[in-house]
Amino acid sequence: MIVTFKSKASGDLIYFKDIALKLLQLMGRDDKVPSALYAEDVGSALALLQQGLAAIAATERAKAEQANTDIADQPHAGKERVSLQVRAVPLLEMLQKAQKKHCPVLWQ
């Protein structure tokens, strides 16, 4: 299943449901789809998302450093994957634009 984020401030964004729900949780929202953010709430959701992503990035860096010391002699031991921080960039940009233009953001 997919979740589409919409705002008059930017184009639509499409995420797989599991990633969308993680991002919504970081924004302080529940897993209710469809739902929305009022224009007044976009700034606080953006700040929460940025804080949550920073915390996850710090945890992942610590894990990566530990993994590198544990399996340094094993080539290709780890899988390449797209981090949540990279996946969140379009949503961060949408929230920033919505905040500037004082627009709500909805998802369905």
Score class of each variant (00 low, 15 high):
A57W: 08
R81L: 13
A98R: 02
A67W: 15
A39W: 12
A58V: 15
I19H: 02
A20C: 09
K17G: 04
V33M: 05
A64N: 13
E40R: 15
I2P: 01
D30P: 07
D41E: 15
K6R: 13
K63R: 10
A39P: 00
H102T: 07
L13W: 04
L48C: 06
M94T: 03
A64G: 11
K79H: 15
R87V: 03
A62H: 06
D18C: 03
E60K: 11
V86E: 11
R61Q: 12
A9L: 09
D73F: 06
V105S: 02
A72R: 05
Q66P: 05
Q108H: 13
I2H: 10
E65M: 03
I14E: 14
A58T: 15
I2Q: 15
D70Y: 07
A20I: 06
E65H: 02
Q51C: 10
D73Y: 07
K8Q: 08
P90Q: 01
P104E: 12
A88Q: 01
P75C: 06
Q74M: 13
Q50Y: 01
H102K: 15
D18Y: 06
I14K: 15
T69A: 14
K6Y: 02
K17F: 06
Y38E: 05
D12S: 12
V42A: 00
D18N: 09
H102A: 12
M1D: 07
A64L: 14
I19F: 02
Y38G: 09
P34F: 00
L53R: 02
P90G: 00
Q85N: 12
V89R: 14
A47I: 07
K79L: 14
M27E: 03
P75W: 15
S83F: 03
E40Q: 13
Q99G: 00
Y15F: 11
E93I: 08
E40I: 10
L23I: 12
H102N: 14
A9P: 09
D18V: 05
P34Q: 02
L49A: 03
K97M: 11
S7A: 11
V86W: 01
A72P: 02
A9H: 12
E80W: 04
Q50S: 06
I71A: 12
I56D: 06
D73S: 10
Q66F: 14
D30L: 12
K101Q: 14
L53I: 14
P75L: 10
Q96G: 04
P75Y: 15
L95C: 04
R87E: 12
K63M: 09
S35I: 06
A20L: 05
A54R: 05
E80Q: 07
A88C: 05
N68Q: 13
A72K: 06
T4M: 07
C103I: 04
I71W: 06
L37K: 03
D31R: 04
E93G: 04
W107V: 12
A57S: 13
A47K: 11
V105T: 13
L49P: 00
S35Q: 07
F16N: 09
Q108S: 12
L46W: 01
P90I: 01
